[in-house]
Structure formats: C-alpha cells, structure tokens
C-alpha cells in the first residue's frame, strides 16, 4: 500500500551519495595501493618472462634470498620467545610500572629504521663501544650477518608481544589458575592451556613479524655494508639492481617480496575472519 521514501532508513545516505563515497574511496585506494602493487609485477615482466626468471635465479639474487630467509629464521623464533615471555609476565601477574614496560616494548615502533641500524653501528662498529674487543677476537658484527640479525630483531621486537599482550589480558588467568589447582606444573599449564588459547593470535603476530623481518630495508641498509653475495638481503639486492638502472631485474626480484606480501595479507585476512574473537587489537 505504501512505498518507503527514497532514503529508506533515517540513518542512511541517499543512494547517489553512497555510490559517490564508495567510488571515491575505491579510486583513492586503487591509485595508492592497487596501482603500485600492479606496477611491481608489470615492470618485473617488462623484458619478458625469460629475463624475469634469470633475474630471480641468478646467484646474487639466490644468495640474497637465502640471507633474507636466514635472518628471518633467526629473528622470528627469537621474537616468539620474547613475545611469549613478555605477554606471560604482563598478563598473568600484577605489578607496578606495567604500562611503562609495555611502552618500552613498543619503543622500536617509533624509531626510524635508519636509527635502528645506527644504534648497532654505535655499539659494534669499528669505533663502537665493543668495536675494539670484537676486532681483537676477529668477530664481525657490522657488515656481517650478526649485524643484520640484530637490527632485524630490534625492528620486529614488538610485533609478537603486541599481539599477545592484549589477547592474554583479555583471556584472563582463570584457566591457568584452574590448571595449577588441579596439579599441573607451570610449563605444562603453559603448553596445554595457554598456548592453545593464543595460537591464532600468535600466528597472526608471527605473520606480521615475518613480513617485516623479510622486508626490512632501512635498518639493514645501515648495518650491512651492501656487500654483494655476502651481506645483501633481498631488499638490499633490489636497491643495488635499481641503482644500476637494471630496472626490470629489480622489479622481478621485488615481485617475490610483493608475492610474499600478498600471501601475508591473505593469511592475515583469513585469520581475522575466522578467528576474530581470538585476536585482540589489530592496529600496528
């Protein structure tokens, strides 16, 4: 008998405005996000598929890949341990200055990547605090793999902890207390009660940590010395290729990392949709 008016609900915009807003947002996102992403792949294939394959399989690229994976393989597990320890300490106990501790853990987030590399040069570089001692024992930190690992750990330090702390705080202590009252040991409680509860949040944090570890550029650039085949991670290798005007090769190698980014996004989204209740706080 009646038709609802054009703006059916009192809390909805007129249809034309809705389409305008959606269109503008999509235009902006397309320009700023989708286009750069597309550019990586298109430019990588500009000289054809053969050149693409050559670029990603030549020895320097392979060793850069291996180095990137190695650094990540060390940094990520260490950050998992630190993240689990920190979130256990913060979520399961009460003590003063807790928020100070959380802020300190967050510090690497607000430090410029270049500064993150500089600090290790100050410690372990030739004129650094430990420079002389290291030289005497013939240990290379800066311009060698250990430096890369340290800088990467610094950069990715907060990632796992940031995911787990709010999650564990939300989950409370009752289950752990119940397990302990039933006679379980601390370790057993952690393994059988806590870990299963936080596994999706942990996975989420690991995903982000890994993406950042493999993609870090600024910090690693400062500590690496850019020695081809030895201290070049994948992002640094890309920079070298680019600076040599070897654009297609640079983009080809970059597409590997872009592919990793896409995989990370897909897994991240999957985790968010399926386990939204078991991930706390998603701003990074």
């Amino acid at each position: 008998m009646t038709r609802p008016p054009a703006s059916a609900s009192p809390t909805a915009e007129p249809r034309w405005l809705r389409w305008l807003l959606v269109g503008s947002a999509l235009l902006f996102l397309g320009l700023n996000l989708a286009l750069p992403l597309a550019a990586v792949f298109v430019e990588g294939l500009r000289k054809g598929l053969a050149a693409y394959v050559t670029a990603i399989s030549e020895p320097d690229a392979i060793s850069a890949l291996r180095l990137t994976l190695t650094v990540a393989a060390i940094a990520v597990p260490l950050n998992i341990v630190i993240g689990l320890a920190a979130s256990w300490a913060i979520a399961k106990f009460d003590f003063r200055f807790k928020s100070v501790l959380v802020t300190l853990i967050d510090l690497p987030f607000s430090v410029s990547p270049v500064v993150s590399g500089l600090i290790y040069v100050l410690l372990f570089g030739l004129q650094g605090w430990f420079g002389a001692a290291l030289r005497d024992h013939d240990i290379q930190v800066i311009f060698a793999v250990p430096g890369l690992v340290l800088a990467t750990i610094f950069i990715t330090f907060p990632f796992v902890a940031r995911e787990l702390i709010p999650l564990m705080e939300e989950q409370g202590r009752e289950e752990e207390e119940a397990a302990l009252s039933l006679g379980a040991s601390g370790l057993s409680t952690f393994w059988h009660v806590t870990l299963p509860n936080v596994r999706w949040g942990l996975l989420y944090g690991v995903l982000l940590c890994n993406a950042r570890a493999m993609g870090e550029f600024g910090a690693v650039s400062v500590v690496s010395g850019h020695i081809r085949g030895r201290t070049n991670t994948l992002p640094l290798h890309i920079e070298i290729l680019y600076n040599e005007y070897n654009f297609a090769a640079a983009f080809a190698v970059a597409s590997l990392l872009a592919g990793l980014a896409l995989v990370t996004l897909v897994l991240k989204s999957l985790l968010e949709w399926r386990f939204a209740g078991q991930l706390a706080g998603k701003v990074h």
Binding site: M1, T2, P4, A8
Partner: peptide, 17 residues
C-alpha cells in the same frame, strides 16, 4: 522503520511516507 504494507497516521494525517 517502514512497513511492507499498511499505513500510519498521526493526528489524522497520513505519515506513511
């Protein structure tokens, strides 16, 4: 909300739309 069918009037004036 708006009904699928039927009408509403307030003070004798049809308000359905």
């Amino acid at each position: 909300e708006f009904p699928d069918s039927g009408s509403i009037s307030i003070g004798g004036i049809d308000m359905s739309d």
